[in-house]
Write a protein that binds this DNA or RNA. Structure first.
Length: 439
DNA sequence: TTAGGGTTAG
């Protein structure tokens, strides 16, 4: 009698795992709970709770999550570390404070390293670097996940040098070997700072010695080499990737675009298609961006059409942004504005900046004034100092001196400075970078 | 069945 019961439960569990929305997940979850025998030897209930939590947190409703939390307490499922860590992660995405509160209530018997690492990643996302580090220091048996979570936190806070020192501390003071996730993290850290060719190379060597060139590491290496200014190394890595996936092609196309090799980037895109690889939305963002920089308006139009019609990809804000930029850079401001007016997602500050910059360059004040009204109604972060300057310049050029002055005053009040343009490639390398030898 | 990383427009 118990076999069909379990089969049904197993099927429900599979369906629950693939559930895309909260309501269907909850329906499946309750159906499953009803069918489960009281003993539940396979702990289906716990697994079901874990699966249900994903779409539930994706729904973004804190009351819904609290409701489910209450159910988990009542059914004693929170004693499972898997359930506790899943719930903690769900909370951390919606309310870091609620996550912290939950963490304090988890009993020691449940609070394993998984749970602790979820809490660490929550702190890394929501708190300052110092608090996250204090928490990290208190973890008794840190594993590679604890270290790489903390490392990523340094990089996302732009503390690249401290992050690399932290990485070195791990290699010197522990016996933990960096796994591929940590290596990807280190490489993206190097890439974001645009420095450290030696570190890139030493990690590359380490990866090759360990014969661990996974798909993601290959992509990260291509990206990292391109960003530190070594397109030649990036190409070499790309050439040696045994089975090229869309990520490799895309990273290489981006790299070529970054180094202004526009023709080669487009040739590579065509080669990719010839070899039967299916470009994804990022690949199209890359080639459309190339069209903008290279002034290829018709080519850009064709790629956009190709993406929608042949590859059935829904254009994102990035693609529309590229199209606006393609038209704007070519001086076709009406076309650019038309894209903004008809696009199926909300235009953001980046898109408006692109249009307004072209309005200034081509002295089109009519479109500029319409755009200004829209962009001033949006929230502009202080990092967008350049946009304030642009707005002020446009007002001035249109003869609206009072408005221009107002924007300048606003900038002073908020202590906004225009970011100066700079290369991501550092002239000098940091010394003393060590990656452990293979044991 | 639970944790960390991942190439995207100005």
């Amino acid at each position: 009698m118990s076999l069909p019961h379990h089969l049904a439960a197993g099927e429900l569990l599979t369906a629950l795992r693939g559930a895309s929305c909260a309501s269907s997940a909850l329906r499946l979850y309750h159906l499953l709970r009803i069918r489960l025998p009281p003993s539940d030897p396979c702990s289906f209930a716990g697994r079901a709770a874990v699966f249900a939590l994903k779409p539930l947190s994706a729904a973004g409703s804190l009351p819904l999550l609290s409701h489910f939390h209450a159910h988990l307490i009542r059914s004693n499922l929170l004693a499972y570390p898997q359930v506790a860590s899943s719930l903690l992660r769900s909370y951390s995405l919606l309310s870091p404070a609620a996550a912290h509160h939950l963490f304090d209530q988890i009993p020691p018997a449940t609070c394993n390293l998984f749970v602790v690492n979820v809490m660490l990643s929550s702190l890394c996302r929501s708190s300052d670097l110092a608090s996250a580090r204090l928490f990290f220091d208190d973890i008794p048996d840190k594993d590679i996940v604890s270290w790489s979570t903390m490392l990523a936190c340094y990089f996302s806070n732009r503390s690249v040098a401290d992050g690399l020192a932290f990485f070195r501390t791990m290699t010197f003071t522990t016996t933990l070997a960096p796994d591929y996730v940590m290596l990807v993290t280190v490489l993206t850290g190097c890439a974001s700072a645009g420095l450290l060719q030696p570190l890139c190379r030493s990690i590359h060597g380490y990866i090759v010695r360990r014969q661990a060139v996974s798909m993601h590491l290959g992509t990260s290496l291509i990206d990292c080499y391109a960003k530190v200014g070594r397109l030649d190394y990036a190409s070499r890595v790309f050439a040696r990737v045994p089975s090229r996936k869309v990520m490799h092609w895309t990273a290489m196309i981006c790299g070529m675009a970054m180094h202004l090799h526009y023709d080669e980037a487009i040739q590579l895109f065509e080669e990719m298609r010839r070899q039967g690889a299916r470009p994804n939305e990022m690949t199209f963002t890359a080639v459309l961006s190339v069209c903008g920089h290279a002034g290829l308006v018709e080519q850009g139009r064709e790629f956009f059409k190709l993406m929608v019609e042949e590859y059935d990809l829904e254009p994102t804000v990035h693609h529309y942004g590229c199209m606006v930029d393609i038209f704007a850079k070519a001086g076709q401001l009406e076309d650019a504005y038309e894209v903004i007016k008809t696009m199926r997602v909300e235009p953001n500050v980046i898109i408006w900046t692109s249009l307004l910059a072209a309005c200034k360059r081509f002295k089109n004040f009519d479109i500029a004034m319409e755009g200004l009204e829209k962009v001033l109604a949006m929230e502009i972060s202080d990092e967008n100092g350049g946009l304030y300057t642009l707005i002020s310049d446009l007002y001035a050029m249109g003869g609206r001196w009072d408005d221009a002055l107002k924007v300048r005053r606003l900038m002073e009040e908020h202590n906004v400075r225009k970011n100066r343009g700079s290369s991501s490639i550092k002239a000098r390398e940091a010394p003393g970078l060590i990656v452990p030898a293979v044991s």
